[in-house]
């Protein structure tokens, strides 16, 4: 005897519905969505969320100076060029300091800190203390506060920020990529990027570069040479 497999019961009407759905996907099959369509409501099952991507951070390898990007917040990473293990932590220095410190994060030199020797290397450096024999290198931003005591040969940075309340005078030619002035800066600024003066800020001296932006309320007492790259060509 032939064994018969159990067959599922399929009604003709259900089969027709499935075929129509596959072919047309019309509203007839889903009458409950007609009202939602006209009223502006969201159809059930529609994707209404937003996608949030983690922030990208620029990291400069403090061994080989290679620049790369990482996504999100990490404590350490590996340089893709020299394979060095890089720490990306923020540090705070209080009191006297001698020795080297290297990180891909931010180094905060507080008001009572004195850098007596060694080199401080960080992605961003906030200087409120004194440099007396040490040296600072910021791969990105160097923020000079009013309480900072330094000689210009003691630091090296790509970008310079003068926060509100700070009154900084630089005697040497100040060469940076970007300069952001919220306080007062008196200097001969030569920038390869954007020089920005925020509301309440004041830039005195000279400014040369391709980009200048002054917010309403910002002060500018300079001899300026702002020539965007397109104008130079």
């Amino acid at each position: 005897m032939v064994e018969h497999r159990k067959a599922k019961l399929v009604s003709g009407y259900a089969a027709m519905k499935a075929a129509r759905r596959a072919a047309h996907d019309t509203d007839e099959i889903r009458p409950e969505f007609d009202e939602a369509k006209g009223s502006g409501q969201v159809k059930p099952g529609s994707h209404i969320g937003t996608t949030v991507l983690p922030t990208k951070h620029e990291i400069v390898c403090y061994e080989c100076d290679y620049i790369f990007h990482i996504t999100g917040r990490q404590k350490d990473t590996v340089c893709p060029k020299c394979r060095a293990r890089l720490e990306i932590l923020d540090h705070t220095i209080e009191g006297d300091w001698s020795g080297d410190l290297r990180t891909g994060g931010t180094i905060h030199v507080t008001t009572d800190a004195v850098l007596k020797s060694g080199e401080i290397k960080g992605s961003n450096v906030i200087l409120q203390g004194k440099i007396d024999g040490g040296r600072i290198r910021a791969f990105q931003w160097l923020e000079l506060h009013d309480t900072a005591v330094f000689e210009e040969k003691d630091f090296e940075a790509k970008d310079l920020r003068i926060p509100a309340g700070a009154d900084i005078t630089l005697k040497r030619k100040a060469m940076f990529r970007r300069v952001d002035v919220v306080g007062r800066l008196k200097a001969k600024v030569h920038a390869s990027g954007l020089v920005s003066v925020r509301t309440g800020g004041l830039l005195e001296g000279e400014v040369h570069g391709p980009h200048l932006m002054v917010e309403d309320g910002g002060g500018l007492k300079v001899k300026a040479g702002i020539l965007p790259l397109e104008a130079e060509e």
Partner: peptide, 23 residues
């Protein structure tokens, strides 16, 4: 007020408040 992209060669004498912004 200066927008990014401006070409400016010359001297500027603009000091709205006369004092730096407070911290």
């Amino acid at each position: 007020a200066v927008e990014d992209g401006v070409t400016f060669v010359g001297k500027s004498e603009v000091n709205p408040s006369g004092a730096p912004a407070a911290a």
